[in-house]
């Protein structure tokens, strides 16, 4: 299904691994970066990481899709399987 052109969208796994899968792993860290509880700081850094990931995917997508303003190119091929 995935043509390979949109392979960079696997990057979208990172936000889910960071903000969901890692929750139990970081819960008991006692370190308080900038006085914040570690699990809270972890989620906040996660937001920044997520933004960066979306921004990278956006740039790569726009390079592929260009300025054509029609339907999503890959949507016509049945879609990819991320997210």
């Amino acid at each position: 299904m995935t043509t390979g052109r949109y392979g960079h969208r696997w990057l979208f796994l990172i936000p889910f691994l960071w903000q969901i899968a890692a929750v139990p792993l970081v819960n008991d860290v006692a370190w308080r970066p900038l006085s914040l509880p570690f699990p809270m700081a972890w989620q906040m850094v996660g937001i920044v990481v997520t933004t960066i990931v979306i921004a990278i995917v956006f740039r790569l997508d726009e390079r592929i899709d260009g300025d054509e303003d029609g339907a999503d190119g890959e949507a016509l091929q049945g879609g990819d399987h991320h997210a």
Partner: peptide
């Protein structure tokens, strides 16, 4: 709130 909103943006 920190977790859900940014993941909603990815989706």
């Amino acid at each position: 709130a920190l977790t859900s909103v940014s993941l909603a943006a990815v989706i």
